[in-house]
Design a protein around this nucleic acid. Structure first.
Length: 268
DNA sequence: CGAATTTGACCCGCGC
DNA sequence: GCGCGGGTCAAATTCG
């Protein structure tokens, strides 16, 4: 039997994902937050599809995929810091192809705006320390609370936005723990002072639109927490992706030899 | 019974 | 050219 499953099989398996890959999927957003829960609840539905053990870290890395929509290409990597188990590093990749829940959407808007500024400021020639500093400066401007730090690095094949939420202030009065996956545990605090206040009708607004406008006035958010940033990450990814345009690493299509004859023996 | 998670195997890209 | 590591898939297992 020839391995023809390539075209058909691959098509049936990855189907639209590849298309979106080609379109945009280089941007990534890493969110570092202190959380005791295994994963950060960002309001989206995630399905775990793999787990690997990093070489230098005693803690394994988990891979999640968004299951809210059938063809949602968004993926999430959850890795816990080896030195500080309290720090959870969540990396988002891809853009949601479906309307997010109000909670997640609100947060997404927030970070997308921040990301927009970052890109705007460090996009021209963000390649060295200058770019990074620039973005940092912008980040601080956007978030005077200084409790969080955003960094963008364009030296990588794809832009990576890193949000540091590990420096949460010692008593965030405004911090309202949404609903951490672990009740009773100290939820991560991510405080973002918002001038406007009140939920803006920004729901269901595609991130790309935000980027296009490039001037989303104000970050509207009522509750703040690390989860918020996490949820917002995907939006940031979208922004970054849009900025970088397209850049592929793998051949346009070589699914033929992807999973031809996978011989798997059962564990027991 | 169904869905989600777990776990081992497979494949690819990159480094040496 | 070979080896290592990272990432993904899919069957099996477990939980609701």
């Amino acid at each position: 039997m020839a391995p023809q499953m390539g075209a058909a099989g691959a098509a049936g398996k990855s189907h639209d994902q590849q298309a979106q890959d080609a379109n945009m999927r280089k941007a990534r957003v890493s969110v570092r937050a202190r959380s005791e829960a295994p994963i950060i609840a960002d309001g989206c539905q995630w399905r775990k599809y793999g787990q690997k053990m990093a070489k230098g870290n005693p803690c394994p890395r988990a891979y999640y995929r968004c299951t809210m929509a059938t063809g949602c290409p968004v993926r999430k990597q959850v890795q816990r810091c080896a030195e500080d188990r309290s720090i959870l590093i969540t990396t988002y990749e891809g853009t949601h192809n479906h309307p997010l829940p109000p909670a997640a959407m609100a947060m997404a808007s927030t970070t997308s705006a921040a990301a927009s500024m970052l890109l705007s400021g460090s996009m021209p020639s963000a390649d060295g320390a200058a770019g990074l500093m620039s973005s940092n400066f912008l980040a601080r401007t956007v978030l005077p609370c200084s409790s969080s730090m955003a960094t963008i690095s364009a030296s990588a094949p794809f832009p990576t936005v890193t949000l540091d939420l590990t420096h949460a202030p010692p008593g965030a009065p405004n911090a309202v723990p949404l609903n951490a996956a672990r009740p009773g545990a100290p939820a991560p605090q991510f405080q973002v002072p918002l001038p406007g206040g009140g939920m803006a009708p920004a729901f269901a607004v595609p991130p790309q639109v935000l980027y296009n406008q490039s001037k989303f006035s104000g970050l509207q958010m009522s509750s703040d927490s690390a989860e918020a940033a996490a949820a917002a990450a995907p939006a940031a990814v979208a922004l970054a992706g849009a900025a970088v345009a397209r850049r592929r690493r793998r051949s346009p299509l070589t699914p033929t030899s992807r999973w031809r004859s996978r011989r798997r023996s059962r564990p027991s």
